[in-house]
Design a protein around this nucleic acid. Structure first.
Lengths: 227, 227
DNA sequence: AAAAAGAATTATGAATTCAAGATTACACGA
DNA sequence: TCGTGTAATCTTGAATTCATAATTCTTTTT
């Protein structure tokens, strides 16, 4: 039985706004009109403003005092920095996971791995990505470090708007699958050092296939919406 | 010339409450009375509640719907998890720093290192810790990854309440200084791999000298203030 | 006396109101 | 025509008010 969820308005609103940002309905740098969103959600300004504060703490929006909220703009550097961070966190998750993961959990990941290979061989990119992500999530969960999971989650939200080129080069794909082959090996041997190293390096590739559409190049321009 | 700081009330309040928690004036698990804090700060409930939402997003307080706010309770596991994370982040900071740190910056860190050694030889623990922290902050800053810095900052706030035994064993201290000797060496050779490895392992020691006073052992007790 | 039920009180959640800062529109002068 | 100054409008920041959920206190019943 699941817990009764007392949901506060501000949480609901924060989730909805987060979704709007992730789905590109609110574009980076765009000014967020309080009045407009209040009407859209049918709530007063109080819970909306609380939600915006939470989203600002999460790095999803930017709050300019007396000048309202803006969707956080991603620069190439920020995306790169975020991937570096996520790599480090994944590395740690691998190390920790190896210390305590159960045989059953490893078997589950092995299953996903085989599925992923199948999708790779059949060139099903979208399916491949989906299963791929599941593997990383399983390892993360197996780390047992909830704060790590929370932080990783936050970072992945920030860069969720980044889309990948749907035509990944064969070389990169080949390399990514190789990495995964090594990963599953290290995991089954419970070699935390090696798994950590692989995971830390693995994410670097991802950036190279990120199509930075809509991601502005590094500038100091703080007010692009004023056009 | 520094930027004009438009400070909002809720930011001010969040900072003040954060301080109260870090200085132990609000104790873990304790219920935070909105009315009381409002009077203390001379503000209305609106900015206080906004501040609490931010602090909750930062993991400093816990918001129980319809039941108010509590100072986040630290369990031994949470502290351990946090140190693991901080270790990974420091490791990354070392790797990144080596890629781009300037000779001048290295020299600055070398200076701090010598200072730290002096304090070590003279048994000045407090001074030692202070300079020690400065070194880590310099490396972090040299990484140039602002999101990394932000995350590390957040984590360190969470565990700032943890105090260290003022009688560190000679062995641990010796080992910590050894680590630092290796760190400065790796940094001067700009050996990111090695520096990263050292930093990732380094923090593990810290936990062992943490005196977990006031840190509750792992329990599911969600309502300790109700006594 | 202990437990349960119900009323009174208190605290939180959210809407509304009021105040202050920012933006826009427009007039005027160089 | 461009720039400056000012009034009008709009937006945000914060206090207040109202509604509802939680807690405490009292009364009642066994």
């Amino acid at each position: 039985m699941s817990k009764i969820q007392h949901r506060n308005l501000y949480r609901e609103v924060a989730d909805r706004v987060r979704d709007l940002i992730e789905h590109g309905e609110l574009i980076p740098g765009e000014r967020i009109s309080e009045r407009e969103l209040c009407e859209k959600f049918g709530v007063s300004r109080t819970p909306l403003r609380e939600a915006l504060k939470v989203l600002a703490a999460e790095g999803m929006v930017e709050l300019l005092p007396n000048r309202g909220a803006r969707v956080m703009k991603l620069t190439v550097k920020m995306v790169k920095d975020t991937y570096d961070l996520m790599g480090a966190l994944e590395g740690l998750s691998g190390e920790l996971a190896c210390r305590q993961i159960s045989d059953a959990e490893i078997a589950g990941i092995r299953d996903l791995h085989e599925q992923m290979l199948k999708h790779y061989r059949q060139g099903e990119l979208a399916e491949y990505f989906r299963v791929n992500q599941q593997i990383h999530e399983k390892i993360l969960a197996a780390s047992g470090n909830e704060i790590l999971i929370e932080m990783y989650d936050n970072l992945s939200h920030r860069v969720k708007r980044v889309r990948y080129s749907n035509q990944m080069s064969d070389d990169f794909w080949r390399k990514a699958v190789d990495d995964h082959e090594n990963m599953i090996g290290a995991l089954e041997q419970r070699d935390g050092q090696r798994l950590g190293q692989i995971l830390r390096d693995h994410l670097g590739n991802k950036l190279e296939v990120a199509s930075l559409t809509g991601i502005v190049d590094d500038t100091d321009d703080r007010d692009p919406a004023a056009r």
